[in-house]
């Protein structure tokens, strides 16, 4: 597991979009720093709690939206910082609620490099071992079908927030959707640009708090219409 030296880890930017994750984000940042990742960027998307302070105290870089704009907008801000520094070769996005295991970052990056992927998606469903609430499973099946339909391909776990991006993928994909629909947007655009997407099984842990966030039915409907509008009128 420890094939990446500190020098290589210095070329990785971990982007964590965060909205009101006080009590969780500090732990995620600390774990990542302990594992040798030097560049942990928390994008605080207008939190009203102490998420920013907690992340700073834990040792993360912080960029703060003055108002809440959504997970997509926050991720796009992180990617903008990635683009501005030539030093970064790999971007990793993960959730700030602690549902992803920080030790899986290295595994995901290894698989990303081995498979020569442009985007590697941490797939919550393929292993069949994760305990995922039924509601979320149903939502993801629908989201995968819609994303697959719009990108003319079969896709798996298109809504996962745990992803590894090559520099090429970050340069090519401009995230325009502010909300959770950016997850599908990235997959659609990656296929559109001919980028290689790879799925790698990951572990997740859901808590009551993380279940209260994320994507519900209404978000799903909004996502569908936003994506339809995007596919019909934006993608050239």
């Amino acid at each position: 597991m420890g094939v990446f030296s500190g020098e290589i880890k210095d070329k990785v930017l971990i982007v964590i979009p965060v909205f009101n994750e006080e009590g969780r984000i500090g732990r995620v940042v600390s774990e990542l720093l302990e594992r040798g990742y030097l560049n942990v960027l928390v994008v605080d998307d207008g939190s009203s709690d102490n998420s920013s302070k907690e992340a700073i105290d834990a040792g993360a870089f912080i960029v703060r939206h003055i108002i809440n704009r959504g997970a997509g907008a926050a991720t796009a801000t992180g990617m903008e910082i990635f683009r501005k520094s030539e030093k970064f070769k790999i971007a990793v996005t993960m959730d700030g609620d602690g549902q992803h295991y920080t030790e899986d970052v290295i595994y995901l990056m290894q698989m990303h490099i081995e498979q020569g992927a442009d985007i590697t998606i941490g797939d919550r469903f393929s292993s069949g071992k994760n305990v995922i609430p039924f509601r979320r499973k149903v939502y993801n099946v629908i989201a995968d079908l819609v994303t697959g339909w719009m990108s003319f391909r079969m896709v798996s776990d298109s809504q996962s927030g745990f992803r590894v991006w090559s520099r090429k993928a970050v340069e090519k994909i401009n995230i325009e959707q502010d909300g959770f629909e950016f997850c599908s947007e990235v997959v659609i655009k990656a296929h559109h640009h001919g980028l290689k997407i790879s799925n790698v099984p990951i572990r997740v842990k859901y808590t009551e708090e993380s279940m209260q966030k994320g994507q519900g039915f209404l978000v799903g409907v909004k996502t569908f219409f936003n994506l339809l509008h995007h596919v019909l009128f934006k993608i050239k």
Binding site: V63, H65, T77
Partner: peptide, 20 residues
């Protein structure tokens, strides 16, 4: 509305990046 949202996000991002 979509266009307005896009402009607001762009502005918010610009402010946050400048501060950063």
């Amino acid at each position: 509305i979509k266009e307005q949202n896009r402009v607001i996000t762009k502005l918010v991002r610009k402010i946050s990046l400048t501060q950063f």
